[in-house]
């Protein structure tokens, strides 16, 4: 017996939006080779996400960013978004950007939020509390790599 896919629910499509899936399937920064000056490991022990985030910082600016590891679609997409968003950002500005991004991921009142277009796919994650940690992991790992090193 072969099971054909049935209609995928709207709730599933709300979380796994087209743009987010695009980041998951063709991620920016995944396993890219750069001359990294900083790196750190991040683990989400509850579900098994494992990620390595690495960055090249030159004269106070993040000039390149990449990640590797075995992680879920939400984590991969979030890491891909992070790689797009933080490249060419000054390190001094990063902490505030990351705190803002994490607050977006944690928010359930997404209608009231104003955020950069590149972050829009992360807005849906807040409505799925058990997935927030997946989306946050790359950003926290970046903090560990660059700001806490």
């Amino acid at each position: 017996m072969t099971t054909q896919p049935s209609k995928i629910s709207n709730d599933a499509l709300q979380l796994y939006q087209e743009v987010l899936l695009k980041h998951h399937k063709t991620p920016t920064g995944f396993e890219v080779e750069i001359n990294n000056t900083h790196s750190a490991d991040g683990v989400n022990a509850a579900c098994g996400d494992e990620i390595v985030v690495y960055a090249q910082v030159e004269a106070g600016t993040i000039t390149a960013l990449g990640f590797s590891g075995d992680s879920c679609a939400i984590c991969r997409a979030s890491a891909s978004i992070m790689c797009s968003y933080l490249t060419n950002v000054e390190v001094d500005q990063v902490e505030a950007i990351i705190e803002h991004t994490i607050s977006i991921i944690n928010s359930t009142h997404t209608d009231e939020l104003i955020c950069a277009e590149v972050l829009q796919p992360l807005l849906a994650v807040g409505k799925f509390p058990v997935r927030r940690q997946c989306a946050i992991l790359p950003w926290r790992t970046f903090v560990k790599a660059v700001l806490e090193s």
């Binding site: 629910s9 709730d11 599933a12 979380l15 058990v130 997935r131 997946c134």
Partner: peptide, 14 residues
């Protein structure tokens, strides 16, 4: 090529 957490999450939604 699908992470376990995504499988559980998709099933949970259903």
């Amino acid at each position: 090529k699908v992470h376990c957490h995504d499988v559980a999450s998709m099933l949970d939604i259903e």
